[in-house]
Amino acid sequence: MKGFLAKIDPRSGLRYVLLLQLAIAGILVVSDVASLYPSPFQKQVDLPSGPISPGDQRREYRTDRPNPKLLRMDEPPDLPMPENFPGRLEFTEQVVERIGRVLLVSGQIEVGDAQRFVSFLSDMQEKPDLVALHSPGGVVSEALSLGRKIREAELSSGVLAGAVCMSSCPYVLAGGEERIVSLRGIVGMHQHYYEQLRYIPVLFAVEDIQKGQGETMQHLIDMDVDLSLMLFSLNTPPQQIYALIEEELIETRIATAIID
């Protein structure tokens, strides 16, 4: 055996190790790219498109614009909402009847948005009565940070009529000391991706996902939101969204008050 090992050229051995690593990387790349496209063997689910009702709460998930068919808009929205979601969060001040000074936070949640929120808030002449959310979600860690910033500022959060708060956005909503949700708005959950290095061994990828889930659960505990909220997330595929009804909003405490 010792003689056999002595015959191995170290340079050849290193080359074989590098080739093996490249092969593993290639497999991970192919599997990752394949996950972006629907499998021809995967059963396609035809989802309804109208307003949600109890037991009929799954709809197609979109990040480009809200789905107006999800919303019960028999009356005008509480404040004007953008037709398309901005590529990152935008902040605008508005006054809403019965609520007061509102800071509308709309768009996709990207890295750095929590600090941008803090900067905008510090430049406001008066503290807003409500942080109103209108977002399809985005980077989970940034949503958690933004939720903590809202809590540190002792602000209330809400989803008003005509607005949606989906994917990671409910973790921002959780930050409000009071959380107001309109029955003509949508709070939606689904499985989401936690940030991780691409093309790393599966063992470490799973470890990162579990760490991300743990941080999310701790955030909900800190914000006094029931962990049962996570069930709606874990049980809904990423391409779908599960819209919570009034009973679920109240029982999970993601909403502390419901308005029409």
Rank of each mutant, 00 (worst) to 15 (best):
V187T: 14
V172H: 11
H190C: 12
Y193M: 12
G158R: 00
G55Q: 01
L18S: 03
R65A: 13
P38G: 09
E110R: 08
T216K: 11
P54N: 05
S233C: 08
S31K: 06
V102G: 01
D222L: 01
I241C: 04
C169I: 00
L229C: 03
T92D: 12
E83W: 03
A25W: 08
I150D: 03
G147R: 05
Q239W: 14
Y194P: 07
G162S: 00
P54V: 00
L14K: 12
D224V: 07
Q218C: 01
K149E: 14
V202C: 13
I245A: 10
R179Y: 00
L203N: 13
V95P: 02
Q44I: 04
V45Q: 15
S182G: 00
P201F: 12
D46E: 12
F41A: 05
E178H: 10
Q21H: 10
G175R: 11
A255L: 09
N84P: 12
H219S: 01
K7I: 13
L47E: 07
E154Y: 04
E215R: 01
L244R: 06
L160C: 11
V29T: 11
A205Q: 12
I180Y: 07
E248I: 11
E215W: 15
V111D: 15
Q94K: 09
E154C: 14
G176N: 10
P51L: 01
F204S: 13
K7N: 12
L160Y: 00
G107I: 00
R11E: 09
Q239M: 07
F204W: 11
I200W: 15
E154M: 09
